[in-house]
Design a protein around this nucleic acid. Structure first.
Lengths: 353, 353
DNA sequence: ACACTGTGGTCTCTATGTTGG
DNA sequence: CCCAACATAGAGACCACAGTG
């Protein structure tokens, strides 16, 4: 009787992609050997190694990561949630993270929360369905659910751009409150008597709020003047809005002679408005920005600003995170907070005495 | 002899995550029912629906997309390659794509090629290992390998931000050469006699190069003056570099009275330099930017620029792409190129006669 | 509504050489 | 010459779910 060839499965769903089995057949070895070759080539004898290699080449075999991840119960993917892709602060950090993770053979899954913690929670939930090797969030503020899900996921978590609690294990960032303090101190040293803070959507941009709070605390402590925070309600046309806001503020309180801005775009708006109205900078009004964006050094006059170490944050965070992903042993993940600091770049929108 | 009970598997690899089986046991139904409930709840009787729902809740069950994708031989993931995350043009487009894809239940895998086609190829290769439902690339220039891999992957491919060949099936963008032509025409209409083009890294930023070429062709055709293209060699401190470049150009050719910039940041640099040197804009020098970035409307004077429909590109592309992903039938994927156009925003850095 | 098979791999464990004492 | 020790290849359970009948 003819040896009934196997019922021959239900036809391959659709894919015409070569599988490991195809490679094994062509190379005349077992699938296990192909798998081993792919994961630890040095563990396979040279003879078989060549045969397998050749089979892979002729078939244009591409391993199926999905199957691999399922079997191995882990993937080489790291999920990253940032508040906004359009914000170039985070863009630089993400670029740095990408280049590090890539070298280590990890892929980045990226999404933006639009500064919405509820949305962040949804994103984390979705990401976890893909069993990432690790997760990176921005800042320290997260919903309880977010924290809970991550805690029970058993994977390393990193927080970037801010230090504080709760810590989910690893933080790399800087002290935003100190930024506010530093800026105010700098203005006071330059002789300013009344400094206000100008921000956008401080209700959702927590890091900017911490800076504002740092400013406020330092202002109160200084005894020179009460803190005054202006919070623009929406983030469209902020350059223009910043100009209007500073004009209004100075109209209602002519003694204002210094302003700390949430970011350089606002500062640009202030400078342009000052130019328009003939307000002398820094003599009549001193301005400090944040971010040291591209245009900061060539505004008129060049903008004094604070530069966070955007790339360094990404680099260091990712290096440590990947180390933790590799170690697999969550006992080797001590709580860690790295303060990479920031830098005040004095230019010509503030006085130095 | 004791009936050797089954070798009893090796203990569950590691994961403590609840699986569909756990849910099924708790709800006292079969795994198939749970699966069905998750995919088409309406196909399950109300009674069981409740039991399953409750079991899912109490177990905090999170479906494993990896297993799902393997079984279904497709994933609900769309891979997107952009040249640079830090470029806010693409950021807006990506945001739009993200919001569309999310509604349809797709995740975006994002990576940046750093304007490097070889790198793009590597990224595509890596992405394909994850069997994405679709792929989105930026522009029309891709290596042969990239095109080959995508063609044989059998999934819908979209190209954004530029129209041209080769088409990989679906393009949504606008005609960059037309941008260059339109800008020049606008300046000529305003009375400019000698217009130059100022760009950054035109060797790698192909879309900007197309704009430059459109300008050059139109300049030649106009008979007014020969085209002149300045190409800044690197993209750091471009605002400052733009100022230097325009100053140098006008020094060597005082007849220059108009400049078309690759993007608004360059235009800002030109305006600031003009202010510094007391060059009247637009009378002595007219300026056109590209991008309509945030600050464009409040530079001094407000910047005439060209606004691409950043979000619309992402939205329309993703809508069609997802449609194609759902259809599964690649015969329903006709070649399609959608020109969403662009908009010249006349402000005060150019004259209108 | 559910039993059952298929999805493409990983990884443990066993079987089979191979070498050295 | 035999056996232990070592290295390497292969067998096969398993991963968690989709989808057919």
């Amino acid at each position: 009787m003819e040896p009934n060839s196997k019922p021959k499965s239900r036809a391959r769903r659709n894919t015409q992609r070569a599988t490991m089995l195809d490679v094994a057949h062509l190379a005349d070895v077992s699938p296990s050997t192909v798998s081993l070759y792919l994961r630890r080539p040095e563990a396979v004898s040279e003879k078989l190694r060549d045969k397998v290699k050749q089979a892979i080449d002729t078939l244009h075999y591409v391993p199926n990561r999905i199957a691999g991840s399922l079997a191995a119960a882990r993937s080489r993917t790291i999920a990253v949630v940032i508040p906004s892709i359009a914000n170039s602060f985070f863009a630089r950090t993400v670029e740095a993270m990408q280049s590090i993770s890539e070298k280590a053979g990890y892929n980045l899954l990226l999404a933006n929360s639009e500064y919405d913690l509820k949305r962040e929670e949804e994103l984390v939930r979705t990401f976890l369905e893909w069993s990432p090797a690790g997760v990176v969030l921005t800042g320290c503020d997260h919903t309880e659910n977010t924290q809970g899900m991550l805690a029970s996921a058993g994977i390393p978590v990193g927080q970037m751009w801010d230090l504080g609690s709760p810590s989910l294990g690893l933080q790399v960032g800087f002290d935003n409150a100190a930024v506010g303090r530093t800026a105010l101190q700098h203005l006071h040293q330059g002789g300013c008597q009344r400094v206000i803070y100008l921000g956008v959507r401080l209700d959702v941009d927590h890091r900017a709020r911490y800076r504002a709070e740092g400013y406020a605390a330092a202002a109160s402590a200084s005894g020179r003047h009460a803190p005054c925070i202006i919070d623009l309600p929406n983030n469209e046309h902020i350059v223009q809005e910043a100009g209007k806001a500073i004009a209004a503020a100075m109209a209602s309180d002519p003694l204002i002679d210094g302003v700390i801005c949430s970011n350089d775009s606002l500062a640009l708006g202030v400078l342009l408005e000052a130019q328009r109205r003939g307000i002398r900078v820094p003599e009549r009004l001193s301005v400090v920005g944040f971010g040291d964006l591209d245009f900061a050094e060539c505004t008129i006059p060049p903008l004094t600003t604070i530069r966070p170490h955007r790339q360094q944050i990404g680099r260091r965070l990712m290096e440590i995170l990947i180390e933790r992903c590799e170690s697999q042993d969550s006992h080797e993940w001590p709580e860690q907070a790295i303060d990479v600091g920031f830098e005040l770049i004095p230019r010509n929108t503030t006085r130095i005495i």
